[in-house]
Design a binder for these strands. Structure first.
Lengths: 164, 164
DNA sequence: CCGCGCTAGTTGACTGTTCAACTAAGGCCG
DNA sequence: CGGCCTTAGTTGAACAGTCAACTAGCGCGG
């Protein structure tokens, strides 16, 4: 005990390797599948996520920074994505009434209509590629595990905010 | 039964929503954390994955297309990534002996040395952000679920190969 | 009430990824 | 063995994402 050369590296065990690889690759494949399905309808997954958060928000509107935190993207990225969605007429920028620095992003009627179409496609995609290929118990376990990852991430002193 | 208007949309239940959101966000946060740790050492996660596959391959070498399939990236992306790694002197391209079209990517000695350093950082990162925040049972369940996703993806008629 | 630091958001340059077009070699079928 | 479809890999342009620098408004301490 008390290795003078510093900390030992704790490599993954064989079973851990298998789980880790499955996660890494499965993850990537799932992203590809979900994105492909939405892409065919004319929107990317990250654009969809942004619209989707707006559609659930009180008046179909959210502050840029709230949006960034919700979809785990940098503020800069949200600005660029919002600009793209604005060009498509799905979203409008308005100054925040209470804070002169703030910007509210609001879903337009066309945006609302668009996301309702996309949502149908997306939910089918999520079922086909994820929910329906697992047992309800497996899916719940997956959710619980990822929630634990989130909790640990949130507790991490190093950049809890992606817009660091 | 037999709805004339077509298929019903099977929306996610409340619990399914919770699991799905946890997956989506946790996933993103984990990617950010893992990438940040490697980035600080001077390499991106996807470059690391490429080198890592080479380091495990028989003579430290693999065909471009085999590599693409292993790390679930398009052939084009692997070409670009390999070019970047070649510029850094970590990898060399050689024509495949058996197939005039093929290219073997081989890890150089410097590449081998580099990845050994990165691997130590990466395994620590994976433990800190994922493995060690879960119980062994949770982690195994996560792996099993993602393997099921992979199996379903592989069985899917639509583009099993990302390089479609 | 002024200065200073902090937060909100944007910008533009740079880097990485995707996409479609292309070259070239394998392999099959007549 | 000659055409033709398929596979391997590359290329460059277009696009998305990151990063660091910047503007502007908030809010606190003196």
């Amino acid at each position: 005990m008390g290795d003078m050369s510093g900390e030992e590296v704790r490599w993954l065990t064989a079973e851990e390797q298998v789980s880790w690889r499955a996660y890494l690759r499965g993850n990537r494949e799932l992203d590809i599948a979900l994105d492909r399905d939405l892409q065919a309808a004319g929107i990317s997954l990250s654009e969809y996520e942004l619209l989707s958060m707006l559609s659930e928000a009180p008046r179909g509107q959210l502050r840029m920074s709230a949006l960034a935190e919700l979809i785990v993207q940098s503020r800069s990225r949200v600005t660029h994505t919002a600009a793209r969605l604005e060009r498509r007429g799905w979203v409008v920028r308005t100054p925040a009434p209470d804070d002169g620095r703030g910007v509210l992003l609001r879903l337009t009627d066309r945006g609302r209509a668009a996301i309702e179409t996309f949502a149908v496609i997306h939910v089918g995609s999520v079922r086909r590629h994820l929910v329906d290929v697992l047992t309800p118990e497996q899916f719940a376990a997956l959710g619980a595990a990822m929630q634990a990852v989130r909790d640990a991430y949130a507790a991490d002193p190093a950049l809890p905010d992606p817009a660091c």
